[in-house]
Amino acid sequence: MRKKQWYETLFENYAEKYDKECFTQGTIGECDFLEKELNFDKSLKIIDIGCGTGRHAIELSKRGYSVTGIDLSESMLARAQEKALKNNLKINFLKCDARNLPFNQEFDVAIMLCEGAFPLMETDEMNYEILKNVSRVLKSKAKFIFTTLNGLFPLYHSIGDFHTQNAKEDDVAYDRKHFDLMTFRDYSITTVIDDHGVVKKLECNERYYVPSEITWLLKTLGFSKIEIFGAKLGAFSREDKLTPEDYEMLVIAER
């Protein structure tokens, strides 16, 4: 039997806690930005990759957009479906691996926010498979908007200090092992308490990317226009030039 990866274990029975985390509180502002990027065109078909509890998919659906949400976690998807039903919304939520999406040139827009799938994979090749699949499910003229970890940040700051400052009391504890400059991977021990009160100690491994890497990866997949900005929680803006102070980067790619 295949061993579960840390991100699979993390998101088992974690949906309610996830919705209360500080980093999930910017949904309204982020969707305001997405609407502007889409020119308020409600005819566009959107796929939300790594949709989690469906916060962006649900908000966009409330605003009249057609959204399909995919995620690897059954418990996260169950909560997403529950929230959609409470809001009388019909959203297609599917359990899928982002490295093997069951679509082909069906969507006008892909969003992948708050480290939805990418860049949590164990290897660079797996992360690249996610980008390849996103490219494949998009139509010939399409837009891809996502956030990912900014590799400039750990070069100038302590990731451990950042997580300590932003952790909620009794919810998450972060113990940094080391950041590998050769691979730009951060190895850490994260302790969380899930929705059932179970304490989980996870050996995490996340990949940080520098802007030139993201640009090159997307160009190999046929995206011709790639723009990268700083990603401020709940306040995405084209006015935010990416700096080493930004923990995440916002990527907008078109073809």
Rank of each mutant, 00 (worst) to 15 (best):
K95L: 04
K95M: 02
C96T: 07
N100A: 06
N100I: 03
N100F: 05
L101R: 07
F103D: 03
N104A: 02
Q105L: 10
Q105D: 02
E106R: 05
E106A: 09
D108C: 03
D108H: 07
V109L: 02
V109Y: 01
V109A: 02
I111F: 01
I111R: 02
M112V: 00
M112N: 05
M112W: 00
L113T: 02
C114I: 10
C114N: 13
E115V: 12
G116H: 00
A117W: 01
L120V: 08
M121A: 08
E122V: 03
E122K: 08
T123C: 02
T123W: 00
D124K: 03
M126T: 05
M126S: 07
E129H: 10
L131G: 01
K132D: 04
K132M: 03
N133R: 06
V134Y: 01
R136W: 01
V137D: 08
V137Y: 03
K139D: 11
S140V: 07
K141H: 06
K141L: 04
K141M: 05
A142S: 15
A142Y: 04
F144T: 11
I145S: 01
I145V: 04
F146W: 01
T148Y: 01
L149N: 08
N150L: 09
F153S: 00
F153H: 01
Y156W: 11
Y156Q: 14
Y156S: 11
Y156D: 07
Y156H: 14
H157G: 09
H157E: 13
H157F: 10
H157C: 10
G160W: 01
F162V: 13
F162R: 15
H163R: 15
Q165Y: 15
N166A: 15
N166T: 15
N166L: 15
N166R: 14
K168F: 12
K168H: 08
E169K: 15
A173E: 14
Y174L: 12
Y174Q: 13
Y174D: 07
R176T: 13
R176A: 07
K177N: 14
K177P: 06
H178I: 10
T183A: 11
S188Q: 13
I189V: 12
T190G: 05
T191K: 12
V192K: 09
V192I: 10
I193M: 10
I193V: 06
D194G: 09
D194V: 06
D195L: 13
G197V: 04
G197N: 04
V198G: 03
V199Y: 04
K200Y: 00
L202T: 06
E203F: 09
E203Y: 09
E203D: 12
N205A: 13
E206Q: 11
E206V: 09
Y208V: 02
Y208L: 14
V210W: 00
S212N: 15
E213P: 13
T215K: 14
W216L: 11
L217F: 13
L218F: 02
